[in-house]
Design a protein around this nucleic acid. Structure first.
Lengths: 143, 143
DNA sequence: CTTCCAGTTGACGTCAACGTAAATTATGCC
DNA sequence: GGCATAATTTACGTTGACGTCAACTGGAAG
């Protein structure tokens, strides 16, 4: 048999470029305990596919207004002073909540859509009014 | 005919309480040009139903990670130095983009859901492993 | 009119989430 | 080895989004 296939790794700048964030940001996430990549013999960070997926999750969470702290909880990094099994149970429960939140958020997006549609409607009406009043001259106002 | 019905107004603290934000926050949004409530003879802010709806929109936008600046654009307060019609056209175009963004975001929420489900799956497996391995544990499964 | 609470305008403080700069070390390539 | 890139740590700076405090004013209840 062959030795296990070489798991593809990424450098920090590769990921930074692909995900369109700075290396500083990635290191910052590590400071906050959101990721913990392996290190090379020369102490350089080596990111696995899993690390990459996690970064994507973080960014996705951010785009929805979650704070890094909330994201950390979501991933299950909190409550480190519990025994592992209990820690996992808590994380599972937390994740359950988050899943429900997501469905609520989808509903909210629909509401946001309605809001924007309402604003558009008003703008549209106002525009028709403006243009309807001055069929020939786009700028003239009352003398 | 009756004189126009008295349009219901709100004080700043009423809104703050209802929307669960501070009065400071509301005034801050005004500083940033996001709302411009009328003033009473005594110079106190009077919020209309429209103002209230706008605040809700702002908060909703925030929950999805939009910055106040982006929200301002969304509402159509930018580019004040254009003539009104052109300004409205821009705002309409911008709104169109936002509507598309919203659909993308709904898709993204589905992805986020998948991410979390994946994390959960791993945690779940790990938990089963832990409990399966520990014979003193009440939840023993092995024969 | 006084009292008292709600509201107003500054001005300064704070905290999260990075940016930036400097000094040092690794890695890839000739 | 020698050189140019790229990475690492440390430290300080910045920006957005408010919080907090102070000094003042408005309004209505007694």
């Amino acid at each position: 048999m062959q030795p296990s296939a070489p798991p593809r790794t990424y450098t920090i700048s590769e990921l930074a470029q692909e995900l369109e964030i700075s290396t500083r940001t990635i290191r910052f996430y590590e400071e906050k305990g959101l990721i913990s990549p392996r290190r090379s013999p020369g102490n350089q960070r080596q990111y696995s596919r899993r690390d990459r997926a996690r970064l994507k999750l973080i960014l996705r969470g951010k785009r929805f207004g979650y704070s890094l702290e909330q994201i950390a909880e979501m991933i299950g990094m909190a409550e480190v002073d519990l025994d592992e099994a209990e820690q996992i149970r808590r994380s599972l429960a937390y994740g359950q909540e988050k899943l429900q939140e997501i469905n609520q958020r989808i509903e909210e997006l629909r509401l946001l859509e309605q809001d924007i549609l309402a604003v558009r409607q008003r703008l549209f009406d106002r525009l028709a009014q403006l243009e309807g009043r001055n069929p020939t001259n786009p700028k003239e106002h009352r003398p």
